[in-house]
Amino acid sequence: MKFIVCVKQVPDTTEVKIDPETNTLIREGVPSILNPFDQFALEEAIKIRQEGDEIIVISMGPPQAKKALLKCLALGADKAILLSDKAFAGADTWATSYTLTQCIRKIGDFNIVFCGLQAIDGDTAQVGPEIAAQLGIPQITYVESIEKLEGKKLEAKVQTDDGYKIVEAKLPVLITGITSSSFEPTNPPMMSIMKANKKPFSTWTIDDLGGSSDNYGLNGSLTEVIKVYSPPARQQGVVIEDEKPDAAVLKLIELLSKDKVI
């Protein structure tokens, strides 16, 4: 079988700070990492792979995004393709999914496309379903884990509002989700990192993907970000310390009624 995993290199949002003077993001010094949710999706692909299966990771991004793809290779992917071109810059979810769809079509003959739950910088969770729609294949979102893969059928455990459901899908299918791995993204051992450099890696540009340049990047985007600013800061709260539990609760109730919370 052929698995395609879509990944993104993202700024580590846990390190992002806002410049209080200018209200803009301070990007300097913020490390770029492999989106943790994409790593979980890749780990699931690795978990269900069998002898002879192939895992291809693809990513759209600047040349530096190669680093994220090398990590995927070190974690166990077989082949990586970086989609990098100035024409891809400024893409919204539609243009991003178009670009990835063009790449997946070119690879062809795939069985499962994996996407992470969402990227930790944008948090939209839209690119996966948008790829599935463009490929004209079914999608399963909020997948918890893949339970079974037999012949041309896949069984997955899927999160619902109040529990889980088990669904069965005919391949090819696109799945997103997979948060069951531990949140701390693991780092591959040194040996695997060295081996990763020898695995097949290619960079594709707009010429490789074809199609009209009107559909890529900023030109192809249907939404437009007109302003970015920091959210209103929360007011400093009251912390009750060094009190006996009953006294602390009493004080809290007093504060809550004074502030008309209850």
Partner: peptide, 23 residues
């Protein structure tokens, strides 16, 4: 922006080639 809304809306948006803003 519920589990099913976040599954449904992008599918429709991509099919009709429409912009969509999440959450």
């Amino acid at each position: 922006a519920t589990i099913s809304g976040r599954d449904l809306a992008p599918r429709i948006a991509a099919t009709l080639e429409l912009g969509l803003t999440a959450d």
